[in-house]
Simulated assay, not measured.
Amino acid sequence: MSPREPIHLTNGRRPGGSDGTGEPILLLHPFMMSSYVWTDVAQQLADTGRYEVFAPSMAGHNGGPRNRSWILDSKTLADHVERQLDALGWDTAHVVGNSLGGWVAFELERRGRARTLTGIAPAGGWHRWSPVKYEIVGKFVAGLPVWLTARLLGERSLRLPGVRAAATVPISATPRGVTEVQLQEILDDVTHCPAYYQLLIKALLMPGLMELTETSVPTHLVVCERDRVLPHPRFSNHFRKHIPDIEKVTELDGVGHIPMFEAPQRVADLIIEWVDAHTPPVRQVEAGA
């Protein structure tokens, strides 16, 4: 499979370049995934005709730039995304991030690049020595055998007993939440992700999101009922405690850590509702004015 291309849609189709139409929405993917996770949601947002949607693959992930260092952190990821926003001519956007993408979304908000922020099961909700940080790192280290099997055997690994069930644990509530085609695409992302070890090494050395008290834009925290990677409430308490006057917390029932596969319409709807609620109405020009 070829490296992922960024998803860039306006009025339901890919534009030749940014034409400035519609509210800009930036979608940021989870750890080890790529822009692919947003395929259905991005299309549904663009089909409304009211938004311009951009979903890149971040550095160290499938389709993103290579990182020249042995370590990778959220600031480096945000640097790359910010350069792409500049290329699009977007000073700010409605930023939506899932898991690692949520962590990077908060970093972009700190830099003044967010109009609103939606964190879907965001990562980074810990201090330097928080037990939950070591728990999440341990979960991804425990997945090393599945990652190595996928690297060695490619799509053939999906035919091995138990691999499908193990592979979907960090993604969906049940193995049925991901189709065969989606699982093959996910496998391609996972096996083309040098960020796997680069980010885990850095995560052991750095704190999580420490500037949440400075968050100043409307913020929507979305938690997933059957999230087995960052289960609520242990991994969401940090956000609820430190974000000043958090406007909204939504729990998506019956979905796992990456709900865009299981419930793309529900995810699109909550983004639409949030963005529309925080977008000034367009002034209608009176006839003959």
Rank of each mutant, 00 (worst) to 15 (best):
S2G: 12
P6W: 08
I7T: 12
I7L: 10
T10C: 14
G16Y: 00
G16I: 03
G17I: 00
D19I: 10
T21W: 05
E23Q: 14
P24R: 08
P24N: 08
P24A: 03
I25K: 03
L26K: 07
L28H: 07
F31T: 09
T39R: 15
D40G: 07
A42I: 01
Q43V: 00
P56L: 01
S57Q: 02
R68D: 14
R68K: 13
W70E: 11
I71H: 12
S74F: 09
K75Q: 15
T76D: 14
L77D: 06
L77M: 13
D79G: 06
Q84N: 09
L85I: 04
L85G: 12
D86S: 14
A87T: 14
A87V: 05
A87G: 10
W90L: 11
T92G: 06
T92E: 15
A93E: 08
H94L: 07
V96Y: 02
N98Y: 00
G102N: 09
V104L: 09
F106Y: 06
E107M: 05
A114W: 05
G119K: 05
A121Q: 11
P122R: 01
P122E: 02
V141K: 12
G143P: 01
P145D: 12
T149C: 13
G154A: 04
G154E: 07
G162W: 07
V163A: 04
V163T: 06
V169E: 14
T174Q: 11
P175N: 02
P175G: 01
R176W: 08
V181I: 06
L183I: 12
Q184Y: 03
D188C: 11
D189H: 14
V190M: 11
T191N: 09
T191Q: 11
C193T: 15
C193H: 08
P194N: 02
P194M: 01
Q198R: 15
I201A: 15
K202Q: 15
P207F: 09
P218Y: 03
D227Q: 09
P233A: 01
F235A: 04
S236W: 00
H242P: 04
I243E: 00
P244G: 10
K248F: 01
T250Y: 05
G254L: 08
G256R: 05
I258R: 10
M260D: 12
P264Q: 00
R266G: 13
D269C: 06
I272H: 13
I272W: 07
H278L: 10
H278S: 09
V282M: 12
V285G: 01
E286F: 02
A287G: 06
